[in-house]
């Protein structure tokens, strides 16, 4: 699923970064790579951006919906 459909507040693994080279490069430069574990922290109304937190580096970025759509994720089952 894409980040847009992902549930809030649970750990998600990035499966793939789709989209153009410049967007991918930008995301990677900001520390968001394939296989990273992220969390969806919030969504703005009126089709506004998403707040995505990288759980490893604890950095948060705002992603527009167009960009979020290109980030494919799957839920992570936390080790109990």
């Amino acid at each position: 699923m894409t980040l847009l459909d992902a549930p809030h507040g649970t750990p998600l693994r990035i499966v793939d970064l789709a989209g153009g080279e410049s967007v991918r490069r930008r995301l990677m430069a900001m520390g968001f790579h394939k296989d990273d574990v992220v969390e969806l922290d919030g969504k703005a109304i009126f089709r506004g951006p998403l707040l995505v937190r990288n759980c490893t580096s604890d950095t948060t970025i705002a992603l527009g919906r167009g960009v979020a759509q290109k980030v494919l994720v799957e839920p992570v089952h936390e080790p109990s």
């Binding site: 900001m30 951006p49 705002a62 527009g64 167009g66 960009v67």
Partner: peptide
Amino acid sequence: SPGLILEI
């Protein structure tokens, strides 16, 4: 426009 990627 390429869309928002902004660090908070």
